[in-house]
């Protein structure tokens, strides 16, 4: 069993790439952790689809105001500089190219940047929310994910087999083992854990990993 980064460590790594003052949308669940790991001295402005920019942290239990929630329907707070707006303005921010970064989870990412993260197939009740909007418009669309599925199959693949969220939309993938960019229809390896060899990483990846200069060590603190 290869050592791998925890979800919190993957979120920490992604947070290092977010500039001070960036406008950022974090997907529901795992990507929300990114907000906890902003480097000292940087402050991003977080956007939530239901109509808040620059919201604050979760309130203390018992202090929730349920008119003040995020897209995951969790209670948040306001802080100096918070803005409210309606849904069409909110998605104008998304689609109109005004967000610097959108960070999402994934079931599969293909080497051309196709993303599948909304449906695992035709069973049950389909639900999409804002996923298909978020993958278009942000200057960078990054994915946080385990490098493989629970049963060891690659999540970075040649072609997605699950229903697509968007075509050729992802620009960078932070995994439990590596940082991979998508460039000209290829996976380009930027960073990997020291404890894993290139060949081992390649064997866990569903399409060729290309090299473009040095591969840096992927190092994340215990968080």
């Amino acid at each position: 069993m290869t050592a791998k980064l925890s979800n919190a460590q993957i979120a920490w790594r992604a947070a290092q790439d977010i500039d001070d003052g960036a406008y950022v949308n974090l997907g529901i669940g795992f990507p929300e952790m990114v907000a906890r790991f902003q480097p000292e001295g940087r402050e991003a402005v977080f956007h939530t689809e239901n109509g808040i920019l620059g919201f604050g942290e979760a309130p203390q239990p018992g202090d929730e105001d349920w008119d003040l929630i995020n897209a995951g329907k969790k209670a948040v707070t306001i802080k100096p500089g918070t803005a409210f707006f309606h849904h069409a303005d909110s998605f104008a921010m998304v689609r109109g190219g005004h967000l610097d970064v959108a960070i999402l989870g994934a079931y599969q990412v293909a080497q051309n940047g196709d993303l599948a993260n909304w449906s695992t197939g035709p069973k049950g009740v389909p639900a999409v929310g804002g996923a298909m909007d978020l993958v278009h418009g942000a200057k960078r669309v990054a994915v946080l994910t385990d490098h493989t599925t629970k049963d060891g199959k690659p999540k970075l693949v040649q072609h997605c087999t699950l229903p697509l969220t968007g075509v050729a939309c992802v620009t960078r993938i932070y995994t439990s083992l590596a940082v991979v960019d998508i460039q000209d229809g290829h996976f380009v390896l930027r960073e990997k854990l020291v404890s894993i060899s290139f060949d081992e990483l390649q064997s866990l990846t569903g399409a060729p990993l290309h090299l473009d200069g040095d591969v840096a060590d992927l190092i994340a603190p215990e968080v």
Binding site: H87, A88, S90, F91, R95, V128, G130, D133
Partner: peptide
């Protein structure tokens, strides 16, 4: 089932007298 931003924009378009629009979503 409609993507959330498309749902918002379809409603906005309905109110604004725009019968159709193009979106990347």
């Amino acid at each position: 089932l409609v993507p959330q931003g498309t749902l918002a924009e379809r409603i906005r378009a309905g109110g604004a007298g725009i019968p159709a629009f193009y979106t990347p979503t």
